[in-house]
Design a protein around this nucleic acid. Structure first.
Length: 423
RNA sequence: GGAGAGGUGGCCGAGUGGCCUAAGGCGCAGCACUGGAAAUGCUGUGUGCUCCUAAAGGGCACCGUGGGUUCAAAUCCCACCCUCUCCGCCA
């Protein structure tokens, strides 16, 4: 959520930011007009309330002296009715104002390219070189089917399309990658590990910005009004919801969770394989930092995610997303994409964002600076998403005979297995 | 699912209609004491909104949430939510 004062005082800048995003600015019209009405009513009603408070106190004193207060009480009764009437108006405005504010996305940071869509994203760096093959590289689906490490048909039987099922060394690979990444973030990058719930309540979903806008993209357990998390960002960021942190910043948290996404509106797209699925696994990194340092922290966050890929010897590139391509809550965002030879394309495996105080305002997360409570800045990034990482590993490390070499760093986590082979 | 207890400031905790402008304690900050610290003492310490060009200062709201009663509600009434304990069921 944006600061209403920022809209009030820098309306032009806010409007320009929204335009750069390709977002609708009519909410700004509504907000500024509601805000004006609200403040006028508040001034009026607060003056009346002040009078009521003062007179009520006097009544108490007079009564103690045994004096008759019927006339003043009648007067105050009228005043009370006036107050109630205005309060009702204020409350109606508050509801509308809140609803509008929740729909306004974050303002893109000045350092990012302005553009309407992903074609304006900027490649900021590239690591490694594309793997070369003396045979035609297969897709991960062909490789995996041949090795028997996943089973999409049976997964469809037990659940439905888009829910992957890993088998044997495929399942082992998942577990190995999770441990490998968590260990790295905990031991080398200074994160504290959490193992959070896979469902969250609506307040948490609102806190990180999934609700109200993204309701259709999530699985909703209506009986209990709980939501399956689309990313560990939700439980991990809400870890500190409604708190004033008394520990020193920055705070780094990491967590592995399954992630659930309905992928509404993408029916028929990339239905085969692991690239777009309803449930996938991800290690997430979340940071709570002082506003002054949040952009430095973002660079560090990206490098933490890159370290995972470097260690696995994968070819990747880092994109700075343009104003039209960043997510609802983000002010600045880097995507990391892995090269997948079988797809002959780049795969997004990480998205690292600075939300500034946008989530902190919604989730009410503060810290103390010189005795004053201030909103923290929140950041998060995938470190990294498993399903597509597996795609890249299979496609990059595939051999002519159909086997797949396990990247060296992963071998200890695979219990010494160095190669996935048909059994 | 059944029964009971409870939700008050950063934290603990008192408070059953009007000096509650929320006692007391802990924590935190400043000062004093000290060679320095601890201990001790003193002082100060909530959040949000709003008025004011700004500062200074003023006002309003907030004791789980939402309603209600009253001139006046942390306190009385109604509904709901959450947490804890015990019992039942259960990995």
């Amino acid at each position: 959520m944006l600061d209403i004062k920022r809209i009030r005082e820098n309306e032009k800048e806010v409007r320009q930011g929204l335009k750069n995003r390709g977002a609708d600015t009519t909410a700004i019209d509504k907000v500024t007009s509601l805000d004006k009405d609200r403040r006028k009513l508040l001034t009026d009603v607060e003056a009346l309330k002040n009078r009521r408070n003062v007179v009520s106190k006097e009544i108490g004193v007079l009564k103690k002296k045994g004096e008759n207060t019927d006339t003043i009480q009648a007067e105050m009764r009228d005043l009370g009715n006036k107050i109630t009437a205005i309060d009702v108006q204020v409350r109606e405005i508050d509801v509308q104002l809140d609803a509008q504010m929740l729909l306004i996305p974050n303002i893109p940071h000045s350092s990012i390219p302005v553009g309407p869509d992903k074609f304006s994203n900027k490649v900021v760096r590239e690591f490694g070189k594309p793997a070369t093959f003396n045979f035609k590289p297969k897709t991960h689906v062909e490789i995996g089917d041949n090795l028997g490490i996943f089973d999409f048909d049976r997964a469809t039987k037990m659940t439905g399309a888009g829910f992957p099922l890993f088998v044997g060394t495929g399942a082992r690979l998942q577990r190995a990658l999770i441990s490998f990444m968590l260990d790295m973030h905990v031991k080398e990058h200074g994160y504290k590990e959490l193992w959070p719930p896979a469902v969250c309540n609506s307040a948490s979903m609102r806190g990180t910005g999934q609700l109200p806008k993204m309701a259709e993209d999530m699985y909703h357990v209506t009986l209990d009004d709980l939501w399956l998390i689309p990313t560990a960002e939700v439980p991990v960021t809400n870890y500190y919801r409604d708190e004033i942190l008394d520990k020193p910043l920055p705070i780094y948290l990491t967590a592995y969770t399954s992630c659930f996404r309905r992928e509404a509106g993408s029916a028929g797209k990339e239905t085969r394989g692991l690239i777009r699925v309803h449930q996938f696994d991800k290690v997430e990194m979340v940071k709570f930092v002082e506003p002054e340092t949040s952009y430095d922290e973002l660079e560090l966050l990206v490098s933490n995610a890159e370290d995972v890929l470097k260690r696995l010897g994968l070819h990747y590139r880092v994109l700075m997303l343009c104003s039209g391509d960043i997510s609802f809550s983000a002010a600045k965002c880097y995507d990391i994409e892995l090269w997948a030879p079988g797809q002959n394309d780049w795969l997004e495996v990480s998205s690292c964002s600075n939300f500034e105080d946008f989530q902190a305002r919604r989730a009410n997360i503060k810290y103390r600076k010189d005795g004053k409570a201030r909103l923290v800045h929140t950041l998060n990034g995938s470190g990294v998403a498993l399903a597509r990482l597996v795609v890249a590993i299979l496609e990059n490390y595939q051999q002519a005979d159909g086997s797949v070499v396990i990247p060296e760093a992963l071998v200890p986590y695979m219990g010494g297995i160095t190669k996935l082979e048909k059994t």
